[in-house]
């Protein structure tokens, strides 16, 4: 068997594991009283399995890399679907739509990164003053 084919088979098997984890997440999601999607629960499940060692790198690693590398293709049908709501977005509405998308994206990007940097600095300062106290 060629190496490429072997790799393909391994990825296919690992994909099966990931799909099983996802389906399990969906099953849990349908039992929960709140609307938490199965993929987010599945993500938590996989992380738990990896941390606890139930699943190891060799069980999922290659398929994960494969899916992550090609992730944006999975959004293509949803993207094409935008065409379906063109009738809702004509003229001024389309401009407003685009404006809101652009402005909020910039605002979220800035507020998030600023918060991360600020909290990091605050924690560093506190840690530094704590060591100073100890030194005294």
């Amino acid at each position: 068997m060629s190496l490429k084919m072997k790799k393909g088979l391994i990825i296919a098997g690992q994909l099966g594991v990931l799909i099983a984890v996802y389906e399990f997440g969906c099953a849990i999601s349908s039992m929960l009283p709140i609307d938490l999607p199965g993929n987010i629960i599945g993500m938590g499940l996989l992380l738990t399995c990896l941390v606890t060692g139930i699943l190891k790198r060799k069980h999922v690693g290659m398929a994960c890399d494969y899916l992550i590398d090609n992730m944006s293709i999975f959004f293509v049908p949803a993207g094409v679907g935008i065409m379906g709501c063109v009738s809702l977005l004509q003229g001024a509405a389309a401009l407003k739509f685009a404006f809101v998308c652009v402005v909020t994206t910039v605002l979220v990007f800035l507020s998030t990164s600023a918060t991360v940097v600020l909290v990091q600095r605050l924690m560093e300062k506190r840690a530094a003053s704590a060591t100073k106290e100890l030194a005294r």
Partner: peptide, 24 residues
């Protein structure tokens, strides 16, 4: 098209799950 391309929409689930690996 959207109905026929359901494989991608379905795989969005396992792909999000796979992100756990990069977090790990």
């Amino acid at each position: 098209y959207q109905q026929a391309a359901g494989l991608f929409t379905f795989m969005l689930g396992p792909a999000t799950v796979a992100l756990a690996y990069s977090v790990y």
